[in-house]
Design a protein around this nucleic acid. Structure first.
Lengths: 146, 146
DNA sequence: GGACAACTGTTGCGTCATCAACCTTTATCT
DNA sequence: AGATAAAGGTTGATGACGCAACAGTTGTCC
């Protein structure tokens, strides 16, 4: 199986599998995997700043900007300049966005289910817990966020 | 901490941390993280085919081709056409490659140590085991390799 | 109130990696 | 043997992401 596989490669393989799976399912929408986290976040509550998204998902603000642009071009979100702080852009789902986002949620959930199909509930919880802690360790290394 | 973080993002964060760390350390060599797995494999035994590397690390053959080219241009490996099967290219370390590869091994090990610093030995083993199984699951999904 | 710093967002460039198309070489099949 | 298929490798297009430089806006501090 894992004959001398660097730990980093394991992460890479899983991540690429995620991109491949999501990209395929999102192609009919003209979208790809990078836009999903934004949609998921908006499904849970709108009126969100790009900066808040970048911070929440530990993603570069440039990546958020590009993803938001594609979502807007596709007609899934609307962007409004915050009247109080005119630097900030606030994101909202359009009617079309509201309509499709449950499917995106399902895509994400199904991928997680598929990937952890060989693990029982305890092992899944253990995996997430260990990943959380590893992420915490490497997040501390560079920035010192919340 | 992980407030509604998609599982895939956890993998992405760790992987990006790996790239950032390795790229920084490899810059003095004119290399970057993508070339490391090849070097590590060659350190453990030379005369390897690009196709074998792609299969071992579950990486696209195109990625291996590019990484091998950069390593050759940097003078770290040598590429010889297999005289038996003239389609195949076999990779070897140069003297310079032999000289630096122990450092690359160290870079990789130090990153793994840093990332798992918050985990005890049992938890580290558990993490790798769970990752192996998840990777096995998603590897089965597309191909049906060894 | 005016100079300077800090923050949000955008864009260009680089890296990792995939896929698809192609070329060359080898294997297969009749 | 000749045609066809399959395999190893290369290249171009694309996606995700980070970093750095920049623009516009707001905050701070004399």
């Amino acid at each position: 199986m894992s004959d001398e596989m660097p730990l980093a490669r394991l992460f890479g393989i899983v991540l690429q599998h995620h991109y491949a799976t999501l990209n395929e399912r999102l192609r009919p929408f003209g979208l790809s995997a990078g836009q999903v986290p934004i949609m998921l976040r908006l499904a849970a509550g709108q009126n969100v700043t790009q900066e808040a998204l970048a911070r929440q998902f530990h993603v570069d603000k440039g990546a958020v900007a590009r993803a938001a642009r594609r979502l807007e071009e596709g007609g899934f979100i609307r962007r409004e300049i915050d009247p109080i702080d005119r630097r900030a852009v606030r994101l909202f789902l359009t009617a079309e966005g509201e309509r499709v986002v449950p499917e995106f949620v399902r895509f994400g959930r199904e991928w997680e289910d598929a990937i952890t199909a060989g693990l029982d509930a305890d092992e899944q919880a253990m995996l997430r817990s260990l990943l959380d802690r590893v992420v915490g360790t490497c997040a501390d290394a560079r920035c010192c966020h919340e």
